[in-house]
Amino acid sequence: MDRDRLKIFLNGVTLVAVFLVLFAFSRYGTDYQVRILNNMAIFITLAVSYNLVNGYCGILHLGPNAFVAIGAYTSALLTMTPAEKQMNFIIQPIVWPLNVIEVPFVLSLLAAGLTATLFAFLISFPVFRVRGDYLAIVTLGFGEVVRVLCNALQNVTNGPLGLKGLSPCTNLWWTWGVAVLSMVVISRLIHSSYGRALKAIREDETAARAMGVDPFQHLLLAFLISAFFSGVAGGLLAHLITTISPTLFTFLLTFNLLIMIVVGGLGSTTGAVIGAMLFAWGGEALRIVEKPMDLGFVIIPGIPGMRMVIFSLLLMLVILFARRGIMGRSELNWEVILTRLDRLRRP
């Protein structure tokens, strides 16, 4: 009982610490630093929700870019003013009712999440009829279809021209608020009976069915929750970069998310968070290797693209030396830390 209270207290302290750090950056940080932090939070949301399906359910789902795209377009189309829409849609006018609707940012984020969830629901029936590589291909195809539709539906998405001039509503509080919410909600779910059922399906679907678990119902649940957060993160992303186009949501996005959760550890929420943070921050931190370097005896000129080489090498090293990612399937939470400390105190 004492321990539970201590954990609640420590969680509170962590939240306050995160709040203070964010406050400091929003006050004194440069735009560059704030941008990295925003990216980090969006990646965390995406990685944690993606990991719910790929890591915990053991389903190789390759279409999160579709849900991010749907979320981004939905929220962008909802927050733009009718005048802005008229300016953007120069080839074909936008369809009714989108041309007159304008809602606040909060509602547009919610709508982004719900629309992504709706699409996830619609495709779940064909998707969960198959497993393994086949499921990967079905979802990959869905991701491509959505991207192609974004390109083709000129009067809804403005086609390849994309949407420009969104109001930059996204700030540190929004991105980190959503990131923390997704982390808390998803890790709660995973440590509940529902999470156990999901893991049971991952470990042995036949046995899970024989123990009374309906795989479709549970995979659907995870898939929808994951799609909801991906959609919201898409909305945040759209209002962070303020310009979206179909090229932003290619398979490369899914691929990057896959790297994050594999490096962090498939089936570990903390792993997904670490993976996302490393990805967002590492890419920027490695910029120094592209600058000209003076090593005293030799001067290396800056080589553009060098950081991607180093980045790939680092990824290979992680996978070579930690085959199941940095965290594996274990979590880093207060329970684990306190247990370790206890052991140190009483060897």
Binding site: S193, Y194, R196, A197, K199, A200, E203, D204, T206, A207, A208, A210, M211, G212, V213, R329
Partner: peptide, 21 residues
Amino acid sequence: IRLFPDMTVLENVMVSFHHKL
């Protein structure tokens, strides 16, 4: 044998209760 190998012994049994949650 078809257990859920990467889950704890307790969790293995608890999966059976899930349907009446």
